[in-house]
């Protein structure tokens, strides 16, 4: 069946999370392998695409990078509408951002497409003392807002355990990343790509074949999503 190029399908992915946790930076790292200090704030949402090559298929991510400011929240339904995957980002150095992230997870589970794959991502690992040597020293120019107290060597305020157990509870993929150093960034997107259930892919080119690998990943797919009223959420 899969003769010629690997089957390719596009996946709509939306980034959500508090302002300045590094959503845009994660995308920029993933798409351009780049990091920018001063990015214009996202007005509404930015749209980018990037391909992700899996052994058996190619996933083309259509990434909607949303504005993080609280008042833009009411626009979010417009962007997560029909999304097959979501990246909910928080800032490891800012506990409130995890709270906000949890709100987003709850929102997505109730309002987004059923079966949406949600990944919880703690960003700015470079500001913490762990992170397997990803720390890039104390220059700390970080994302849009620089966590305070980085001089102390560890600005981490959210433990891996806390976030991880929450992620497990809610059946989310979980990663800690650094958009600045690039640590774990690609892994997030790859994991999401793997977790997308075959059935929810736009079957453009013979992607119907059974994929053992994705099957294994099914367990990580969030199946809790409440399908009821998934479309009601659109605010426009």
């Amino acid at each position: 069946m899969a003769d010629g190029p690997k089957p390719s399908s596009s996946v709509k992915l939306v980034l959500l999370g508090e302002a300045a946790v590094g959503k845009s930076s994660l995308v920029l790292r993933f798409v351009n392998n780049d990091f920018q200090e001063n990015k214009e704030p996202t007005i509404g949402a930015a749209f980018l695409t990037q391909k992700c090559n899996l052994p058996t298929r190619t996933i083309k991510f259509e990434i909607w990078d949303t504005a993080g400011q609280e008042r833009f929240a009411s626009l979010a339904p417009m962007y997560y509408r029909n999304a097959q995957a979501a990246l909910v980002v928080y800032d490891l150095t800012k506990p409130t951002s995890l709270v906000k992230a949890k709100h987003w997870v709850a929102e997505l589970q109730r309002q987004a497409s059923p079966g949406i794959v949600i990944a919880l991502v703690g960003n700015k690992l470079d500001l913490t003392s762990d992170g397997e040597g990803v720390r890039s020293g104390g220059d700390g120019s970080g994302d849009a807002d620089v966590a305070e107290g980085e001089e102390s060597g560890d600005a981490r305020k959210v433990t891996t355990l806390e976030a991880q157990s929450y992620a497990q509870e809610e059946s989310l993929l979980f990663f800690e990343t650094s958009a600045k150093t690039g640590y774990n960034v690609t892994e997030v997107f790859t994991a999401i790509a793997n977790a997308i259930p075959e059935t929810s892919l736009k079957t453009t080119r013979g992607s119907n074949q059974a994929q053992g690998r994705t099957g294994d990943e099914q367990q990580r797919v969030n199946l809790n999503a409440n399908s009821a009223g998934a479309k009601d959420g659109c605010a426009c």
Binding site: S74, P77, H103, A106, E107, Q111, A235, C236
Partner: peptide
Amino acid sequence: NIENFAKRTAIR
């Protein structure tokens, strides 16, 4: 729509 969203969010 906005109010539904706001309510949903606030309550949650």
